[in-house]
Amino acid sequence: MRMHWDAFIAAVQERGKYPSQQEAERASRVVMALLGAHLVGEVRAELAGRLPETLAFVLLNPLQAHEPLSPDRFIRATAAWIEGATEKTATWDVSAVLSVVADIAGEDLINRVLLQLPPGYDLLFGHPHPD
């Protein structure tokens, strides 16, 4: 079931405590573009099917990554794409967006997403896994 744009952005805005909808939208677009570069095949398509159409398009047409980014480098890349962001604010942005993604994706899909990512992303999605 695809989540509607307004509901997704409202959830990110609430989770991230953003003063404006525009800030939640900007964070969502950047994080999805970076995440899309790390996911492939059926997992990426299934996740896109649950996102609002605008974000599904961003996820399916990602920025190109030459190698998988560690969680720290993912946060630094997010900070580089968001004007005025620091690593601290980018960590907040990434967690706000990915925790909403995790909620709508469900446990099974998120576990399959995490299998395609370097170790440590479970914390960014708000789904820590014991080692």
Rank of each mutant, 00 (worst) to 15 (best):
S70W: 06
A37Y: 03
L114A: 04
L60F: 14
L47S: 01
L98W: 03
S28A: 14
V12I: 10
Q116I: 01
L55M: 11
V58I: 14
V113T: 09
L47H: 01
A45Q: 14
V94R: 01
Q13T: 06
A33G: 15
Q116H: 00
Q22I: 08
Q64H: 12
L34Y: 02
A65F: 12
S95H: 11
I82Y: 02
L47R: 03
V100P: 01
A7C: 08
L109R: 03
D72E: 13
P19G: 09
M1S: 15
M32K: 04
P52M: 09
R44Q: 15
D122M: 04
T91F: 07
N111D: 15
K88C: 07
D122S: 08
M3F: 14
A80E: 12
S28W: 02
S70I: 07
R29A: 10
W81R: 13
A24C: 01
P128C: 08
T86R: 11
W5T: 06
P52C: 12
L35M: 02
L39N: 05
D93R: 05
L114G: 02
R15G: 06
R26G: 03
P68V: 07
H4K: 12
E107Y: 09
W5N: 03
P130F: 15
N111F: 14
E14A: 15
P130G: 11
A27F: 06
F125R: 00
P19V: 10
E67S: 12
N111V: 09
F57V: 12
A80Q: 15
V12N: 01
T78H: 08
V43A: 10
L59V: 07
G36D: 11
A11P: 03
D108R: 09
E53F: 07
R112S: 10
V43I: 13
W92I: 04
F8V: 11
S70G: 11
A37Q: 12
E107H: 09
H66K: 15
E107A: 08
A11E: 05
V101F: 14
V113Q: 05
L117Q: 01
R15P: 04
V100C: 03
D131P: 15
F74S: 00
F74H: 00
H129V: 15
W81F: 11
V58W: 01
I75G: 04
T91V: 05
T91R: 10
P128E: 05
A48T: 12
V43Y: 10
I110K: 00
A24S: 01
A102Q: 01
A90V: 06
E83P: 10
G49D: 10
E46W: 06
E107S: 08
G49Q: 05
M1G: 13
L34T: 05
T54P: 13
A27D: 09
L55A: 03
V31R: 00
D131A: 15
W5D: 04
V40R: 10
A45C: 09
V30Y: 01
R44A: 10
A85N: 02
V97E: 00
A11K: 09
D6S: 15
A105W: 03
P68A: 06
L47C: 00
L60E: 15
A102S: 11
R26P: 00
S99L: 07
T91I: 03
D108S: 07
F74E: 00
I110S: 00
A37V: 09
R44K: 14
K17E: 10
A48P: 14
A37M: 05
R26A: 08
L51I: 08
T89W: 04
